[in-house]
């Protein structure tokens, strides 16, 4: 039954009708999807994040910017506990997803990651067919019905704007796709598990301008149904696609605000220096 429920959710993600707000509505008005309170992060003894308090709005794009090594990727990965894979990492403070602490004992990491999907900087298609790539997530979640899988694959690929390019070669190796197509495949793959949040770690940094534009269009489409957190080095990109922008520097959250406001009228000196290109 749970599967059916998830499936119907998948077919009609806007079914609850609560997303009447368009992207132009100020996102700060919505309820926070993810909230971190006083979060510290350690790689062994080295502290990477200091006291992060941040709210991520539902059905909006939040961009994380900052110089290299400032901890924004670490923060992003801590939102679906991908950092657990690294030995010796430790988190203090709270990371709340819909009000529930994802680092509490009774949270199942696997089901958390199904709710919070992730797209990496380097496109990482599995060395399998395009179909198997997309179907991997639903399959490990227990979906074995072939026609349902086909439906999921088709919808995911359509959502990721890749369907028209690959519909005739679903059985071919995903490794044969171009870089931009591979990245969109990874997005489609993340969508196939029907997540609520999608984390993107510099998804377009390795792509050419045309592919980047497609990914950005895609993000613009997706934010109507999903909460998106994106790490980017490209400030124009952050300005183009995000509602909220958070600026990280040396492990601290320096400033968070609405994108327009942060880019035009930053409250902090560091932010201004960074976005005007004086450092970083």
């Amino acid at each position: 039954m749970a599967l059916v429920k998830r499936f119907t959710q998948f077919v009609n993600p806007q079914g609850d009708g609560s997303n009447a707000q368009g992207p132009e509505v100020a996102p700060s008005l919505g309820t926070p999807k993810i909230e971190t309170r006083g979060m510290n992060f350690f790689y062994g003894t080295k502290q990477a994040l200091y006291d992060i308090n941040l709210q991520i709005q539902s059905r909006a794009v939040t961009a994380l910017i900052g110089p290299s090594g400032c901890g924004k990727s670490t923060y992003l990965r801590s939102l679906n506990r991908m950092n657990d894979i690294i030995e010796g990492t430790r988190v203090t403070g709270e990371v709340l997803l819909d009000g529930m602490d994802i680092y509490s004992r009774d949270v199942d990491v696997v089901s958390l990651r199904k709710r919070v999907g992730m797209v990496f900087q380097k496109s990482t298609p599995f060395p399998k067919s395009i179909f198997d790539n997309i179907a991997f997530g639903p399959r490990i979640a227990g979906q074995t019905n072939k026609s349902e899988l086909q439906g999921i694959v088709e919808r995911s690929l359509k959502q990721a704007a890749l369907w028209n390019e690959v519909k005739d070669r679903l059985k071919e190796s995903a490794m044969a796709l171009s870089g931009g197509q591979q990245q969109r495949l990874c997005i489609a793959r993340a969508l196939a598990t029907n997540p609520e949040v999608i984390l993107m770690d510099e998804p377009a940094s390795a792509l050419d301008p045309a592919s980047t534009a497609r990914i950005e269009d895609l993000i613009f489409e997706l934010k109507q149904n999903y909460t998106i957190v994106i790490v980017t080095h490209n400030m124009q990109q952050a300005a183009r696609i995000s509602e909220m922008t958070a600026f990280f520097c040396v492990g601290r959250l320096v400033e968070i605000g609405q994108t327009k406001q942060l880019f035009t009228n930053p409250t902090q000196k560091e932010t201004e220096d960074y976005i005007t290109g004086r450092f970083g």
């Binding site: 894979i85 696997v110 958390l112 990482t124 599995f126 399998k128 991997f136 997530g137 490990i140 598990t193």
Partner: peptide, 27 residues
């Protein structure tokens, strides 16, 4: 096998054994 493959599988909600059995071993 590149770590990115394992990470991609983990990020989709695969358990360790699922990652090994479905992705790492075939690759």
């Amino acid at each position: 096998i590149p770590a990115s493959l394992r990470h991609a599988a983990y990020a989709l909600g695969a358990t360790k054994w699922q990652t090994i059995w479905h992705q790492v071993l075939p690759a």
